[in-house]
Amino acid sequence: MDIKILKEEDYLESLRLSEYAFQYSVPEEKIPARLEMLKTHKLLGIKDNSALAAKLHIIPLAVYMNGEVWDMGGIAGVATYPEYRRNGYVKSLIAEAIAQMEQEGQIVSLLAPFDFAFYRKFGWEILSNVKKVTIEKMNLKFLSSQLGSVKRNTKATHCEDIEEIYRKYSERFSGMLVRDTKWWKEHVYDDQSQAAVFYNTSKEAKGYVVFNVKDRKMDIKEMAALDHEARVGLWNFICQHDSMVDIVTVNLPLHDPFPYYLNQPKIKIEVMPYFMCRIVNAKKCLDKFPFHREADPIFIHLEDPFAAWNNGSYLIGNGEVKEYKAKEGSQCVNPPKRGIRLTINELSAILFGYKRPEELYELGLIKGTKQEVDQFETMIPQLKSAFYDFF
């Protein structure tokens, strides 16, 4: 089958496929803006004669990884008309997308899965867990009186203070999206959203919530606090809505300390996996990753069925990563027998901070001796993955 990079004249047809596959409709007046947005994507498509049968979007983005910015390819809009399904079209598009991202220097990739098991087959793994906290009105109890102030914003009055808080908060985690002002206005806010920023007595912006209030429910889409003073200030702001709402829901990264510090932390908490990640170029990721340098060197033997350039053995230690070049896409030249064996899924989960080597070994997903796994464990810093966005 012939995979093509779609051109501007194909964008409307691509939009119609998305509408059909994902069962939504773009209002006529918003179609020009949607087509303009597609100019920032790379669209891969498969046609049946002149008709579009399947397509996939690659969005050039970036994520924060251990305090640095890594180029990332966001996979979105993967769709096929029903009459073309089960012909291997999506598999071919995904394989080509991985190759395209490698060529573009996007060393990792993220996507929102319709099915986790499906994308695991292609090397993506869970990026992070999110927790949704549901608070009834009777538990909206103020914490200690708080100095400082809160200022509300909308999309129209969006301020740089929110962006700076988000940037600092994101650096505490692995995998958070790098946002510019355009992304904030087009993807974080909707027409009803508000953002409340907490300022301490020194007029420093230290936290924010992005939220909607409707039908006696306060839905907090994001909450980010840089210190405990900001946590208290934002919680007290939420409590100020006690006459307006019956329920408050808060969407948070799993590792955020809310609601531990509340007077009544026994409230409903739902935890679920969210988004998936994949290493596109293993050597570049390993070179950039902040391994603990005092650990003894160790070999890892990596398998990646959809990115042959990743297959092979890597010696990690003494401040460097040495790659044993793969031969014929899968077999290493004189591979050492010692070391641990894993797939691109496990390596992605480890480098993003979702799972530890010892956890994956206990699950039978890493092969090697216990001593070797313990050795690899000591190399990996304590990381916490998180993700707020959707694309």
Rank of each mutant, 00 (worst) to 15 (best):
F390L: 14
C277G: 15
L52P: 08
I350F: 07
D115I: 05
T154S: 09
S145R: 09
R85E: 07
V245M: 03
G88Q: 07
Y324W: 04
A386I: 03
E19F: 08
V209M: 14
D374V: 08
S128T: 12
K91Q: 10
T154L: 01
E362T: 13
G317E: 04
R152Q: 10
D287Y: 08
E358W: 13
K91W: 02
F291H: 11
F390Y: 15
F390E: 13
G67V: 09
W235F: 04
K384I: 02
G77C: 07
P381F: 11
N139K: 14
N236Q: 03
P32I: 08
V69T: 11
K131I: 00
A99S: 14
E346W: 04
Y81Q: 04
A117S: 15
F258V: 01
E303Y: 14
E294Y: 14
G364I: 03
A349S: 09
Q375H: 14
W309Q: 15
P257D: 06
H241E: 02
E160K: 14
R216Q: 15
I135V: 12
M244E: 04
I3V: 06
I135T: 07
K337M: 10
K214H: 14
L383M: 08
L351N: 05
F122M: 02
A205C: 09
L93W: 04
A282N: 11
A230C: 06
H301C: 10
R293S: 15
L110V: 11
